[in-house]
Design a protein around this nucleic acid. Structure first.
Lengths: 163, 163
DNA sequence: ATAGTAACTATGATAATCATAGTGACAAGA
DNA sequence: TCTTGTCACTATGATTATCATAGTTACTAT
C-alpha cells in the first residue's frame, strides 16, 4: 500500500478516532492494557502480534498520549506501558465493542449459555449483562466500575497464549 | 503484508469486534451509513476512499450481516447499502468514538467553542454533550434518539468532499 | 450519436505486515 | 568464567493489502 490515508485533519470526530482506533493491532493492545497487561512480551504473547507491530503501535499510542512508557526497574532496564487519562477514557469504546460482540458475534451455544466475559458492577454487585447503565442500580458504567470474569473457554485460550 | 491475522475464532469479544472494526475504511463507511449516506459513489466521495476499497469493505459488511445491498431501481440497475439490525447496534461503538474524539482529539479552540458535531436528544430536546445517558432526562441514548448538527467547519468540509 | 451517471472492476507501483532471527543489557547458576 | 535465561526490543526478506488512476457495464437523456 502507499501511504495510508491521513484522517487527523478531518473535522469529523469519528474520523479522528478512526485514525487511531481503525487498526486491529491498536485495539488488541488497548484491550490488553485495559486488562492490566503492561509488559511488552506479555502483550505480544497474548495478542499474537509480532514484536515489530507491538513496538510500532506502542510508540504510536505514546505519541498520541494514550499510553505512557514507564521504567519499572533500572538494572537491567525494564519498561512497561500504562494507559493515560486519555487512554482510560477509551473505556466506553472498548466496552461498546465487547457488548456488541457478546450480542452478535457468537454462534448459538458457542460459549455455553453465558457471555464470553461476564461483568459485575462493583458498587452494587449486579451482573451488568451488555448494558451501558447498570441494570441493578441505574448508574452509568465507567472505567474501573466493573469486575470481569472470563468464561472457561476464554480462560483456557488465554492460558494457552501466555508466555 | 501477508495475510492479516485472523481473530474470528478468538473467544475474546473485543477481539471479535476488532476483526471487523479494526480497519479505518470500515469505520468511515459505517459512519456514513449511520448518517444515511447509502450510495456507493456518495460514500466513496465523502470518505475519500478509492472505489476498490469501498467495494471490498461493503462486500465484507454484507457478508458479516452488518449491512445489506438493496436495489432501489431496476433500469438502469442501481443499488444502495443499508445497515441491518446488527449494524445499527454498532451505534454505541461509533457514538463512543465520537465522544472520545470530542473530548480529546481537538486542539484548544480548533472548532470554535462548541463540539465538532452537536447532538440533541429528540425526546426531551436536551443537548447531550458527550454523555451516554441524556443529561436532561436520564434516558440511555440509542440509535435514532439523537439529532445531529455539524459545526460550520465540518459542514464546509463535507460540502467540499461531496460529488 | 454523443454525453452523462451510478456502481463498480482492472492495473501497476508502493508500503505495511508477518514470520523468523538477532541484539543489548543484565542476573543467576554451574 | 562460561553458559543459560529474561525482557524489550530491532533487522531482514517475502508477501500482500492499499492507493491512484483508468476502464467497464448498463442504462437514460438530449
Amino acid at each position: 500500500m502507499p501511504k495510508r490515508a491521513d484522517l487527523s485533519d478531518t473535522y469529523c470526530p469519528v474520523g479522528r478516532s478512526a485514525e487511531i482506533l481503525g487498526d486491529r493491532a491498536v485495539l488488541l493492545i488497548l484491550r490488553d492494557l485495559f486488562f492490566g497487561r503492561r509488559r511488552f512480551e506479555a502483550i505480544a504473547a497474548n495478542t499474537g502480534l509480532g514484536p515489530q507491530i507491538v513496538s510500532a503501535r506502542l510508540k504510536l499510542l505514546v505519541e498520541e498520549g494514550v499510553a505512557e512508557r514507564h521504567a519499572y526497574q533500572e538494572r537491567p532496564p525494564r519498561h512497561e506501558y500504562r494507559l493515560t487519562a486519555k487512554g482510560k477514557d477509551l473505556f466506553d469504546v472498548l466496552y461498546a465493542m465487547r457488548n456488541w460482540a457478546e450480542r452478535w458475534a457468537y454462534a448459538e451455544g458457542e460459549i455455553g449459555g453465558g457471555p464470553a466475559m461476564r461483568y459485575v458492577h462493583r458498587a452494587c454487585g449486579a451482573d451488568v449483562g451488555t448494558s451501558v447503565v447498570c441494570p441493578g442500580c441505574g448508574e452509568p458504567l465507567r472505567y474501573g466500575d466493573l469486575k470481569g470474569e472470563p468464561s472457561a473457554a476464554l480462560k483456557a485460550e488465554q492460558a494457552a497464549r501466555a508466555v
